[in-house]
């Protein structure tokens, strides 16, 4: 049996929810003060995901970087690896908000998209 403490981010209370697991099965969830907390803890235990916001280098642009994000949340465990892939990328201005900069990052079927317009210099 193992216990995982998960802090619910649903509201400023930040309840500490304890998920008890036996042979990969959740057997008990304690510490939440509302249903949001229970659901959150289950997701956080099973498959924690995050949106990854970062930047990509731009050639010939008014600024040297374009901000980007994963269009959907990706598994938390892939964040640092995704950063490595993104660091290799360079795009050429102009870039429009919403443009796909990298397709299907790390086979997650999630795209990296631009979050700002960057004009040509």
């Amino acid at each position: 049996m193992e216990e995982h403490d998960i802090i619910c981010t649903g509201c400023p209370k930040g309840c500490r929810v304890t998920v008890t697991v036996e042979k990969d099965e959740i057997t008990d969830i304690k510490g939440f003060e509302c249903p949001t907390g229970k659901e959150y803890a289950i997701n956080e235990y099973k498959n924690p995901t995050r949106i990854l916001p970062t930047t990509v280098r731009v050639k010939e642009g008014e600024f040297p970087l374009v901000p980007v994000k994963t269009a959907k949340p990706i598994p938390k465990s892939l964040l640092l690896e995704a950063m490595k892939v993104i660091a290799e990328k360079e795009v050429i201005a102009p870039i429009k908000i919403g443009d796909t900069v990298i397709e299907n990052i790390l086979d997650t079927s999630v795209n990296i998209v631009a979050t700002r317009n960057i004009e040509k210099k």
Binding site: I51, P53, T54, P67, K69, I97, T115, R116, N117
Partner: peptide
């Protein structure tokens, strides 16, 4: 906002989670 590239903006105003540059846009 353009330097606040993280998400978390707009949940109250646009009912949608945006990054800073997207909110400004």
């Amino acid at each position: 906002l353009p330097q606040c590239i993280h998400n978390g903006f707009g949940l109250e105003y646009f009912d949608q989670e945006l990054t800073g540059p997207e909110y400004a846009d």
